[in-house]
Each structure stands twice: as C-alpha cells, then as structure tokens.
Amino acid sequence: MDLNAGSFVRKTGITLTSAAVLLFSSAVFAADTPASLKGATVVDAVKAKSLVDSGVKIIDARVANEYAEAHIKGALSVPYKEKSAKSADFDVTQDSVDMSKLPVDKNAGIIFYCNGAECWKGYKEATVAVKAGYKAVYWLRLGIPDWKAKGYPIE
C-alpha cells in the first residue's frame, strides 16, 4: 500500500508539475495586450461606433482571411504581419505593414482593431501609426468581439 501511495504521489507530483509549467507557459504566450497605448486613445465599441459614424476611418489589422470572414462594416483591411514578440516593447523591425494604405492626412482620426485584448496586431499597428506621426490614433482594444457583442454592423 505504501508503494502504491508513493507511486501515486510521484505520478501526481509529476502531473501537477507538468500542469503548472503548461499553465505558466500559456500565461506567458497568451498575455493580453496592455490596457493603454502611449500616444493613442483606447476606446470601447460604443466610442468606436460613434467615431466611425462621424467619419473616422477604421482599420482591421487582422490577416486577410479573418477580414474576409467578417469585419466591421466599412473597415479597411491593412494586415499587420507579426513576427515579433507579443509584448509592449516588440521589435517593429521584425514585422511588416503597408503604411501606404493608411490615410495621407496624419491629423485624420484612425481606429485600429483586431480580435480582442489577446490579439496584438491592432496594438502593434496603432503603435506604428503613432511612431509614424499620426496624431489622432484610436485603438479598439477589445476588437471585433466587443463590436459584435454590441450588435453593431459587420460585413
């Protein structure tokens, strides 16, 4: 009985250790985006809808097939090709985005979004826009899930 109990403890210990490692790894790789972005205004779907209704351009930073499946009505697809780490201090030189698709007027409002707080493409593209000199950058941090939850139009 002691042998079986010891065997159980060893097996359980290994299982718990493995689970802890997996949990920690998942937390590291699935970290949410920061709650703020220097030089930009974080908005929710209600504010984003108001801005879109007033003529502010909205940019979908997701890959083309995600955009094709469903996107915020009127959004322009400008995919952010991400290879850098999912962190606030990402190395922009590892990524690419076609900035020529953004408005020429750097004073014009522009909203960026992707798939929610765990999606870094919208955050990174908004960061690149701020660094490129855009003055009225908005980031819909909770992305298309927040927009859909409010029942706003998608296409």
Score class of each variant (00 low, 15 high):
51 L>K: 11
151 G>E: 08
92 V>A: 15
102 L>M: 14
88 A>K: 03
141 R>G: 13
149 A>R: 04
49 K>P: 11
110 I>M: 07
105 D>C: 09
83 K>G: 07
111 I>D: 11
131 K>S: 15
110 I>Y: 02
67 Y>W: 05
12 T>M: 13
33 T>A: 09
7 S>T: 10
101 K>M: 13
46 V>P: 05
141 R>I: 07
23 L>G: 14
61 A>S: 15
60 D>V: 12
109 G>K: 11
39 G>R: 03
135 K>D: 02
101 K>A: 13
22 L>H: 00
150 K>H: 03
45 A>V: 06
133 G>C: 12
50 S>R: 06
85 A>S: 10
146 D>W: 00
129 A>T: 13
91 D>H: 01
147 W>G: 14
87 S>L: 02
58 I>G: 06
83 K>M: 06
116 G>A: 11
33 T>M: 10
78 V>H: 08
52 V>D: 08
60 D>A: 11
96 S>M: 11
19 A>F: 07
1 M>I: 05
59 I>R: 05
37 L>A: 10
53 D>S: 05
125 E>V: 07
116 G>S: 14
135 K>R: 09
83 K>R: 08
63 V>Q: 13
31 A>E: 08
134 Y>N: 06
84 S>C: 03
148 K>Q: 12
91 D>P: 11
11 K>Q: 01
12 T>E: 07
4 N>D: 09
148 K>C: 02
120 W>L: 05
106 K>Q: 10
60 D>N: 14
111 I>Y: 00
6 G>C: 04
115 N>D: 13
131 K>F: 02
109 G>M: 10
17 T>I: 09
130 V>W: 00
40 A>K: 04
61 A>C: 14
33 T>C: 12
136 A>T: 15
36 S>C: 01
80 Y>N: 13
94 Q>G: 04
58 I>H: 00
116 G>Y: 01
17 T>C: 09
1 M>K: 09
140 L>Q: 02
71 H>M: 07
56 V>S: 04
55 G>C: 08
97 V>T: 12
123 Y>Q: 14
82 E>F: 05
58 I>C: 10
114 C>R: 11
76 L>C: 02
21 V>N: 05
129 A>V: 12
108 A>E: 15
25 S>H: 03
150 K>N: 12
97 V>K: 07
44 D>K: 03
55 G>F: 00
61 A>W: 06
13 G>H: 02
131 K>Q: 15
84 S>T: 07
84 S>P: 09
88 A>P: 12
113 Y>R: 09
51 L>I: 08
103 P>V: 07
145 P>Y: 00
113 Y>T: 14
22 L>E: 01
74 G>P: 04
40 A>G: 09
60 D>S: 12
80 Y>T: 12
100 S>R: 13
85 A>N: 11
24 F>T: 13
144 I>L: 15
109 G>Q: 11
57 K>E: 14
144 I>Q: 08
94 Q>L: 10
20 A>L: 15
140 L>P: 04
145 P>L: 03
43 V>G: 02
120 W>Q: 10
24 F>P: 05
117 A>R: 13
89 D>H: 01
146 D>C: 02
90 F>Q: 06
16 L>M: 06
148 K>D: 08
83 K>H: 02
74 G>Q: 01
117 A>C: 05
14 I>F: 07
53 D>N: 09
127 T>Y: 02
